[in-house]
C-alpha cells in the first residue's frame, strides 16, 4: 500500500468517526448554533466537510502514490 493510500484511508475514516461513532456524544439540542439544534448542526457540518476531506485525500494520493499507467487512469 502506497503512503498516499494510507493517508487517504486515514482521512476517509473521519466521516465514519464523526457521523457514525460520535453520534451518541452529540445527541442533544443545546447549544443551538446558527439557529440549528446541536445534533443537526454537527451532522450538517460534517456532511459539508466530507467533500473537502475527500478532496484532500485525492490530492495526497496523487502526490505520494507513483503515477499510474496511461490506460489505467
Amino acid at each position: 500500500m502506497g503512503k498516499g493510500t494510507k493517508l487517504a484511508l486515514i482521512l476517509g475514516s473521519i466521516p465514519f468517526i464523526t457521523l457514525v461513532f460520535a453520534l451518541p456524544l452529540v445527541n442533544r439540542i443545546e447549544p443551538v448554533i446558527l439557529g440549528l439544534p446541536f445534533l443537526l448542526f454537527w451532522i450538517i457540518s460534517w456532511v459539508i466537510l466530507t467533500p473537502l476531506i475527500l478532496f484532500l485525500a485525492y490530492r495526497l494520493e496523487k502526490k505520494f502514490n507513483p503515477p499510474e499507467k496511461e490506460d489505467e487512469r
Binding site: 487517504a8 484511508l9 476517509g12 466521516p15 465514519f16 457521523l19 457514525v20 445534533l39 443537526l40 451532522i43 450538517i44 460534517w46 456532511v47 466530507t50 467533500p51 475527500l54 485525500a57 485525492y58
Partner: peptide
C-alpha cells in the same frame, strides 16, 4: 423527527466508500 437525519448522513458515508 430526528431519525430522518440518517438520509442526510448515509450518502456522505457511501461516497467516502466509493472513493476507495
Amino acid at each position: 423527527g430526528a431519525p430522518t437525519f440518517y438520509i442526510l448522513i448515509y450518502g456522505a458515508l457511501a461516497y467516502t466508500v466509493s472513493f476507495f
